[in-house]
């Protein structure tokens, strides 16, 4: 076990010194992988930020239930009872038509308009807060309320948030597709890099095989090479995005001051960063594995 660990440590340090031995080539390799990863990762960061924004601005999961103009006090009480027993409703309040008119009148500039009206055109209304944020739940509630007697119209107040949400869902698909394409690119890059590495270390591989090295022993440093290359590329991508955000956030400051709201793009969370790094390392490892599998066959006895 100790020997096994020592062998792994040696393979790992050997790989690191090999990378350090050709710094320019290693740097370019890492930069290429980093750029390939920075694209989908950056896109993801923007999406995550937009999502956060949508969550911050989306109001309570509210529905406005407008009653028909001819709804009498008895109808209002009946509806009140139904709302009380309705599941999925957190709370509700009644806004009478006179109350609504008063509110409207108190707003600057509208008093004159209201004064010119002979009749109060506003309906009685219930403002219902749903128990869940879920769009599907809100939709069922809306359907249910609309079917009740003396209910003229039901509005879901967070419609715009839902639209943004579905737009973001579309964006997530785009990120996934981009990530898939660039993951393939990463595997191809490591595949080729390892192929070249195998060619330059051909003598070593041949000798090692002749004196009794197992395929696993020969494969190990190449797998480490691929994994380390992938992880370094992931770290490079993270750094690129970090710099981009730094620049972007500075540019965002005047805009944020103008609107009086704090606009700031946040980097990946620690968990997401770690996941991205592991993902990149796994892809690099996989590319190396494919390459070694493909290119070590040449050394078997004929």
């Amino acid at each position: 076990m100790r020997n096994w660990l020592a062998a792994h440590r040696r393979a790992c340090t050997g790989t690191l010194s090999r990378l350090a031995g050709a710094p320019l080539a290693s740097l370019f390799n890492i930069a290429v992988i980093g750029t390939a990863l920075a694209l989908p990762l950056g896109f993801y960061v923007v999406l995550a930020n937009l999502q956060g924004l949508a969550r911050d601005f989306s109001p309570q999961p509210q529905l406005s239930v407008f009653l028909a103009q001819d709804a009498a006090a008895g109808d209002v009480r009946a509806l009140e009872q139904r709302l009380k027993s309705q599941s999925g409703v957190a709370n509700f309040r009644f806004v009478s038509r006179t109350q609504a008119l008063e509110t409207l009148k108190s707003r600057a500039g509208l008093a004159d308009v209201m004064a010119g009206l002979a009749d109060n055109p506003l309906p009685d209304a219930f403002v219902v807060t749903a128990a869940a944020h879920d769009a599907a739940v809100l939709e069922t509630l809306r359907g249910e309320f609309a079917g009740w007697p003396k209910v003229a119209e039901v509005h879901v107040d967070s419609d715009w948030a839902r639209r943004l949400d579905s737009l973001l869902a579309l964006g997530r698909y785009a990120v996934l597709m981009l990530a898939a394409a660039l993951a393939l690119a990463l595997v191809a890059i490591t595949f080729n890099t390892i192929r070249l590495q195998i060619l330059t270390q051909r003598d070593e591989i041949e000798v090692a095989k002749l004196i009794g090295a197992t395929d696993g022993w020969i494969r190990r440093p190449f797998l480490y090479f691929g994994g380390i290359l992938g992880a370094a590329g992931g770290a490079a991508a993270w750094l690129m995005i970090w710099i981009a955000l730094l620049v972007f956030n500075t540019q965002l400051k005047p805009l944020s001051a103008l609107y009086g709201i704090p606009l700031r793009l946040a980097h990946l969370s620690a968990g997401d960063s770690l996941a991205a790094l592991l993902f990149a390392a796994t892809l690099g490892w996989f590319g190396a594995w494919l390459s070694v599998r493909r290119h070590l066959h040449a050394y078997n006895p004929s």
Binding site: K209, L210, I211, G212, A213, T214, D215, W217, N300, P301
Partner: peptide, 13 residues
């Protein structure tokens, strides 16, 4: 093929 490395360890080449 997996057995060959272990066979070779009997040899000095």
């Amino acid at each position: 093929a997996q057995g060959i490395p272990f066979l070779r360890r009997n040899f000095g080449l």
